[in-house]
Nucleic acid binder design. Structure first.
Lengths: 201, 201
DNA sequence: TTTTGACCTTGAAACTAAAAAAGTCAGAAA
DNA sequence: TTTCTGACTTTTTTAGTTTCAAGGTCAAAA
């Protein structure tokens, strides 16, 4: 059984790719560069991944998995549902500031069916986590909500939407947005504050 | 004093342009086509507008003015501030379904300084109107809000942001979005409901 | 003052060639 | 048998060019 070794190499590739992506941006990274970093041939990469897009996806899934697991930990047994919701925003701030250089948006521009599917799944998972927190809030007597899943969707979508409150031309610019990000996160927290009051028991 | 006649011709041009824009989209409309519709020469258009962009802006300002005036009427003396906020969403629905074919987004893609400035002004006016309604709500004892302008900004931005809850690839498509729009408007109303509860006295 | 035909200018498609990157495969290495 | 690679082909990107429709100007007419 050589699968452990195989998985190990696969992971090494993902790490090397992620390093390049976060440093130079995914769109500026070639398969050859990743291979060179690993002192292996490009053909090897194609032994582990069917194509470049699959590798991109795997990198994305890898970091998303960590992010979601942190979120789920937060959602598991909150002392306060409201606090859990705030903590998730903080988690998001960390995640974004860590991976914003990866040009995640440029990859996702690629609106292929697989990508959209993955994006949808991620959003659903995000909403599911928020649903669980809201349900916990109901159980704790913090919130009164008729349809937790629906309310969670609304919270997630409206919070995400605030991302677009910063003008278009700045969103492109990769330098300035670190400062802008704080503004967006701030707005997200302020909206959450009102949102929580709006569903408070 | 020939200014009335001049203004009249200017307005005729704007109407002809708007008709073309809403029918075929602004990006697919040429100056020659507008001139032909008016049975005049293209050079005449340039007597009234310095260039094409200025004409686009004028068309946009014209329809925006109507939209904002309706909003302001709504904001002037609401019996219920909450109801006024709902009415404004309904106004927005009408406005969008009327002018969505104009490809406003494609024009606004043009991130020139003048355009951004105008966009910013429009947003500020939007926020100002919402501020007035929230202040009215406070006066009527409906709401308790510390900083009405700030709360209004948050409401406007989060509501607008919901526009992006529909997947990217559908936003491009000019056919489907009529149905999608209803979904967005629905979400905006649902968010407003919670938002209002969140600032309720 | 307003309008126009004739004219000039510009920018966005439509090709093209060259370079770079993606992707394949027969066979070597482990 | 699984993993890896050099040498190869194919596809995509880029940069340069042409071309033409659309933008824009102007002297002169109405």
């Amino acid at each position: 059984m050589h699968t452990e070794a195989k998985d190990e190499m696969r992971d090494k590739i993902l790490e090397a790719a992620l390093k390049r992506f976060t440093h130079y941006g995914a769109s500026k990274t070639t398969m050859n560069e990743i291979a060179d970093d690993l002192h292996c041939s490009k053909a090897s990469l194609y032994y582990y991944f069917p194509d470049k897009k699959a590798m991109h996806m795997a990198v994305l899934q890898k970091i998303a998995e960590i992010y979601f697991q942190q979120m789920e930990k937060e959602a598991l047994q909150p002392e306060s549902a409201a606090q859990a919701l705030y903590n998730i925003i903080e988690l998001r701030r960390e995640f974004i500031s860590k991976f914003c250089r990866l040009e995640i948006f440029k990859i996702l521009q690629d609106n292929s069916a697989v990508f959209l599917e993955e994006k949808k799944k991620a959003r659903e998972r995000d909403i599911a986590i928020h649903t669980r927190i809201i349900e916990a809030g109901i159980a704790l007597g913090e919130f009164i909500v008729k349809d937790p899943a629906h309310t969670a969707e609304l919270l997630v979508l409206s919070t995400m939407g605030l991302r677009f409150s910063v003008p278009d031309h700045i969103r492109e610019d990769t330098d300035m947005d670190e400062a802008m990000m704080d503004d967006v996160i701030d707005k997200q927290k302020q909206l959450l504050e009102i949102f929580i009051k709006g569903i408070k028991a």
